[in-house]
Nucleic acid binder design. Structure first.
Length: 600
RNA sequence: GCGCCCGUAGCUCAGUUGGAUAGAGCACCAGAUUCCUAAUCUGGGGGUCACAGGUUCGAAUCCUGUCGGGCGCACCA
């Protein structure tokens, strides 16, 4: 890896610009030195410079494209510029070796000390390792789940729920001030249907024979407990009345009970919200009128007639004048209606008001997690946010694809109509919270996800949850074992952070330190991209590296973690694997998955 | 017909937001292994990154078009 001579040439006591192995500081420092000497111009644009681990081993620990990116600005050939930068970098005590390669890449190898120091940092930081200040405390709003309160959550909803909650946690780790928000659609016609369904169940609870549930009402049995509760509390006081006299009350009953049910479902997977915003409250406080007045003042609302969609004209299509928002001015394909034919607001209108409300509450960064079937709605919402915030607000709509629920390779058919859909509760009861949460973020949000109830509970390599948790548990098993031999005092967190890391000389050991050192970088890039699945892959890879190291001890007893006759070496190795466990725990914390210390 | 998402090894998917020779897990093939610290391990084959152009030092990644798959398409939420 790195020759010993290099280590001795740059003792750790010397100051260095490489505070973090994968930081840009060292390269920027070298560039500033060059401009100070007049070799390159002073005010170059460094923004496109990257300092990152190269894909290929043998290209050093970190590579920078600085010479290629700056060559035009500096008026030098990439390779010539690279020579200058390389010479500067070689003077950095943290740098062991510099090479110029290809069109002008600068490949840098850092001294072992840099990596040892990073491992010590991991041990001192604990699971806070990887915490970033990138977000600078900026408020970010993550709106997710937002299931209509018309029934229990089914398994598919769970994906958006976990995705949103995990993304929120990831953003928190990256330094944003995150608000988790639930939008309750309690103002639409669906709720009337729910209310009527509940009333029917109520009559049933009073002893009436209601027969089949009529078409158009919700047939699910989840309304029965609510109905019975009303019957018990109020007797038959709602029975003989006109619909107008009970509809509103039953709406409230129904929404309250459904939301309680949904909250309980979410609690099963440890999801809690900071804010619930009800559509009805937005309407009743006049925010819809206010938002649309605002758009009217900007000249973005007019009355017009839309073209029918080509190729697929609805049968009852009739051209009629509508109140429209000029969505086309902000990138949408057509202007969008704000009022229904009966004069009431469309869902889009209340959503406009809602997003203006969010923005005025201080959220420039807004993330909405929706089901993929709402994809057709994204453009208009983006257009609305742009119009409402003069381009200041940033809305990112993340669409979650379907979950393909399976059992032993066989697909489970779900039909909401037939009432036999699998609820989130059923699945959690079967596989547990941790498995559910982890698996739900093992795929990109916009890719379909297979969820096999049998496979995810297997205790084997095929099961990523097990594989990662097992690595963590295995570390703790070894630590327990080592404690029996050397005593707890020898292995305190402080002792491990001060362990003689220089005893870690095997290339596999060094490689795993470097892998851990990539964690802060990964947190930032995953947060920036709003892609928590990257965390899952990182953890899987780290676990694999650790299991690999373990297995090396099978063939070569010198590489076992516990060396009973060498307390110092053992201490260094305990530091190493403790570091692995901490990084894994740090990642699992984002997922809301418990890092187990024993698998039993 | 239009819009959005997707197309990477036989299968399921990664790919550090434009970097160097495109990776992993299953499956397949060939070896090792009944020991130890805990749920086997090591190696190998396998690719025109759907296709065709373009942008530049450099493209799986960005732009355009074609083909194929999913979702959506006035007033539902």
């Amino acid at each position: 890896m790195i020759p010993d001579a290099a280590v001795r040439r740059h003792p750790m006591t010397r100051t260095t610009t490489w505070n973090k192995p994968f930081g840009r500081d060292g390269v920027v420092f070298a560039l500033n030195a060059l401009s100070g000497e007049g070799i390159i111009p002073a005010d170059l644009d460094f923004s496109r410079i990257t300092v990152e681990p190269p894909r290929e081993q043998g290209h050093g620990h970190v590579a920078t494209n600085a010479a290629m990116v700056l060559s035009k600005q500096a008026g030098m050939k990439p390779r010539d510029l690279a020579e200058h930068i390389a010479a500067r970098l070689e003077a950095d005590p943290a740098v062991a070796n510099v090479e110029i390669a290809g069109p002008g890449f600068i490949n840098i190898s850092l001294t072992d000390e840099v990596w040892y120091r990073e491992l010590a940092d991991v041990l001192r930081a604990g699971t806070a390792y990887g915490d970033s200040t990138m977000g600078q405390g900026e408020p970010a709003n993550v709106e997710f789940v937002s299931v209509n309160p018309t029934g229990p959550m089914h398994a598919g909803h769970g994906r958006g729920a976990v995705y949103g909650d995990t993304l929120a946690a990831l953003l928190e780790k990256a330094g944003y001030a995150v608000t988790r928000e639930y939008w309750i659609n309690d103002a639409g016609a669906q709720i009337d249907t729910l209310s009527r369904s509940l009333h029917l169940r109520y009559r049933e609870a009073l002893g009436e024979d209601i027969g089949e549930i009529p078409e158009g009402l919700y047939p699910g049995e989840y309304l029965i407990p609510s109905a019975q509760a009303i019957a018990k509390a109020d007797g038959d006081k709602w029975r003989g009345l006109e619909e107008a006299d009970w509809l509103g009350s039953f709406r409230r009953f129904a929404i309250d009970d459904m939301m309680t049910m949904i909250r309980n479902d979410l609690k099963m997977i440890d999801i809690e919200f900071d804010v619930f915003t009800a559509e009805s409250s937005i309407v009743e406080t006049g925010k819809v009128d206010a938002a649309l007045d605002f758009l009217t003042e900007k000249g973005l609302i007019y009355t017009g007639v839309l073209e029918p969609p080509k190729g697929k004209t609805p049968e009852d299509w009739e051209p009629r004048p509508q109140t429209l928002f000029k969505a086309t001015e902000y990138g949408d394909d057509v202007d969008r209606p704000l009022k229904k034919s009966d004069g009431s607001w469309t869902y889009f209108s209340t959503d406009i008001a809602y997003h203006l409300d969010k923005y005025r509450r201080g959220f420039k960064t807004m993330i909405n997690v929706w089901g993929a079937d709402h994809g057709g709605y994204v453009k208009r919402m983006n257009a609305a946010v742009k119009a409402l915030t003069d381009g200041e607000g940033e809305l990112d709509v993340k669409l979650c694809q379907m979950v393909n629920l399976m059992d032993g390779g066989k697909q489970l058919k779900m039909s909401k109509r037939a009432g036999n859909f699998v609820t989130i509760r059923d699945v959690i009861d079967q596989v547990g919270k941790d498995v559910f949460r982890f698996i739900m973020v093992t795929r990109k949000n916009d890719a379909q996800l297979d969820f096999d109830l049998q496979q995810v509970t297997e205790q084997s390599k095929d099961n990523p949850v097990f594989y990662v948790q097992y690595a963590h548990a295995r570390v703790h098993s070894v630590l327990r074992h080592a404690t029996e031999i050397f005593g707890a005092d020898a292995l305190t967190p402080e002792k491990l952070a001060d362990a003689p890391m220089e005893k870690l000389t095997d290339s596999a050991e060094m490689a795993i330190i470097m892998q851990m050192a990539g964690w802060p970088r990964l947190v930032e890039s995953a947060a920036l991209a709003h892609e928590p699945h990257r965390v899952a892959f990182f953890l899987y890879d780290l676990a694999a590296a650790f299991h690999g190291l373990w297995n090396m001890g099978n063939d070569n007893t010198d590489l076992r973690f516990i060396m009973a006759d060498d307390p110092e070496l053992t201490r260094a190795r305990m530091a190493l694997i403790r570091g692995v466990a901490l990084v894994i725990a740090s990642g699992l914390n984002i997922f809301g998955v418990e890092p187990k210390e024993e698998m039993r």
